[in-house]
């Protein structure tokens, strides 16, 4: 399954880059994300509850960011598995300036979706991820715009003010209580795709074809 597209976040690339590398932002803004654990530099384990149509379930996943070229590009390798199915994806992500102060994110993803969610839910995936990604970027924008509001405060108890870019391995982040920055979390859970697709959606934005 190939997905390409782009999205604009109305903040400068430095801020967007920083937000997307901050696990405290991620755990608070990824729809359905309940738990994010740092397993190394830019490597996370995560638990996401999500559903596609009637196929709902909890996924255990992993996300590794590599080939980081600051403010320009990165590669995200995703894996997720749960009772409803599996996802494996490699996403190449490019950051650019859409207009001054606005970041354009282009991505192309090669995803393999397996199991029940792949067989029965796959025809729903594109539209589901489109909606979900749009919601996610709104959340990220909100998180950048209101930093005091939630994400930092939502970090795991006992580690306030932990460094943003390199959380210690084993450090656990849990989603903030509702409402908060992810006020639409319940709604998002209902339409989310699964651990991998959720992370795909992080970078997806609205799924417009590149050409």
């Amino acid at each position: 399954m190939k997905i390409t597209g782009s999205n604009v976040v109305p903040y400068p690339v430095e801020q967007v880059w920083g937000a997307l590398l901050d696990p405290r932002v991620l755990v608070a803004t990824i729809p359905g994300c309940e738990r994010l654990e740092s397993t190394g530099e830019h490597a996370y384990g995560m638990t996401v509850t999500a559903g596609v149509a009637a196929i709902k379930g909890t996924y255990a996943g992993a996300c590794v960011l590599s080939d980081l070229v600051e403010h320009e590009s990165l590669v995200m390798r995703l894996e997720g598995a749960g009772a409803p199915g599996t996802i494996d994806a490699t996403v190449r992500v490019y950051f650019g300036e859409a207009e001054p102060g606005h970041t354009k994110i282009d991505y192309d993803a090669d995803a393999v979706v397996g199991g029940m969610v792949g067989g029965v839910g796959q025809r729903m995936l594109t539209s589901v991820s489109r909606r979900m990604a749009g919601e996610f970027f709104t959340n990220v924008g909100g998180a950048i715009g209101a930093p005091a509001g939630a994400p930092a405060a939502a970090a795991a108890p006992g580690v306030p003010g932990a460094p943003v870019a390199s959380p210690a391995a084993g450090q656990v982040f849990t989603a903030p209580p509702k409402p908060g920055i992810a006020a639409r979390d319940d709604f998002l859970k209902g339409i989310a795709v699964g651990a991998g697709l959720v992370l795909l959606g992080v970078l997806a934005g609205s799924l417009r074809r590149r050409r």
């Binding site: 399954m1 393999v112 979706v113 397996g114 792949g118 067989g119 029965v120 796959q122 025809r123």
Partner: peptide, 14 residues
């Protein structure tokens, strides 16, 4: 089947 070998219409709905 999609190119990754997933059967996309494995139900009587599809």
């Amino acid at each position: 089947y999609d190119e990754s070998g997933q059967l996309l219409n494995a139900s009587f709905m599809d």
